[in-house]
Design a protein around this nucleic acid. Structure first.
Lengths: 204, 204
DNA sequence: TTGTCATATGACAGGGTTGTCATTTTGGGT
DNA sequence: ACCCAAAATGACAACCCTGTCATATGACAA
């Protein structure tokens, strides 16, 4: 919720401020980001900043919202392209598109990563992730009704597992930067989730 | 690597400093922890601190090392008690003991949690976790050789998955504090990992 | 031209941090 | 009782941050 004053600014200036914020928030996590750096990069005075935003958190929420809007736009397209896919198909597609989007917006991605390393309570208030997962949850439940997934399993837990594992792989990718490895691991991961790790032929 | 001066201190004083450090590092993550707070709590002067430790990181490494020693001691006992257990049995036992240890040392646990929310690169240099996982990795590989686990699976990935999922549950436990839920989820998680999520009776 | 209102500015106060260093204290050995 | 090295001290410099506020600027209207 920036002030009216901010929205009255010409687009160029708004963009300059947005870019400066992206730059800073992709370098340092929220709690360590410096307004000083942002105003310097944006070429505005410290005083002006406080005329546009209540404080650092206000700006942060603003850029998260903007990023979220862009992301949602991209993701809706995937959903439209695969209307009847089962969970596994959709998931791999989703991952693929997400990776492409990430590689065109590395800074956005860095911000997301840094959020993982900041005060969870602070970050929780930003609820950013629930949106992402809604589609996947629905698909899981649909597949369960379809009889593709064991009905006794708690989709909530499945969702948590998938999210966590995926997040872990994204983090690793972020550090090593190897896309092949990333995709390969995702496939292996899905295989394990699908069929388990126990060797049936030796069992009982 | 504290200085000789530090080790020359009587045990009481060393302990006071250790306790003060634990207190601070369990409240704020490393990058936000304040030496001022630590010296105040330990009842020593700021100057003395720098006579004992090179800097904040030096102290941090010291306490991590101390905690690691204690933890390793506890864990070795579990291993000795279940010499021939398969992975699943050992894992649940391991989790149980780890939880007990955690509940008697909440502050240590908090420090571990906060580490998850600090600069990964900084934290990586502390390699703390590889130790923990060695036992589990060996057990996984043994079970694979025994024919209990599908031989085509990459134990490295399995280990990653298990570690990440477990860490996630620990984090949740840390926030909600519900032990029952924690144990229950762990059991469900293992079931999924063992047999997968696909409904076989409907398949192919 | 002058008035006025939105906007821009940066100095400032108040708070925090780290690492150093000249000085004082302490306590063991003689 | 004295000496001296080791240890303790806290004031200090240097740096960082945030949020405010009196003042300056600029643009548009009358």
């Amino acid at each position: 919720m920036p002030t009216d004053t901010f929205y009255n600014l010409n687009e160029q200036k708004q963009q300059r401020i947005f870019d400066a914020a992206i730059q800073e928030f992709s370098k340092r996590r929220f709690s360590e980001a410096s307004i000083n750096q942002i105003v310097k990069a944006a070429g505005i005075s410290r005083g002006s900043f406080y005329q546009y935003f209540k404080d650092k958190g206000d700006l942060y929420l603003y850029i998260l919202q903007e990023i979220g809007n862009e992301k949602r736009k991209v993701m809706k397209q995937v959903k439209a392209l695969h209307p009847n896919a089962d969970f596994f198909t959709f998931y791999l597609q989703y991952i693929k598109v997400a990776m492409e989007w990430i590689s065109t917006n590395p800074a956005y991605h860095e911000i997301g990563m840094l959020m993982e390393f900041d005060d969870p309570q602070l970050m929780k208030e930003l609820m950013h992730r629930s949106d992402d997962l809604t589609d996947i949850r629905e698909l899981l439940e649909l597949d369960q009704r379809r009889g593709l997934i064991k009905e006794e399993l708690d989709t909530g837990l499945l969702l948590e597992m998938i999210y966590q594992l995926s997040l872990h792989l994204v983090k690793k990718f972020y550090q090593t930067g190897s896309t092949e490895e990333f995709v390969k691991k995702h496939h292996e991961l899905i295989l394990i989730l699908k069929d388990g790790i126990v060797n049936k032929s030796e069992r009982s």
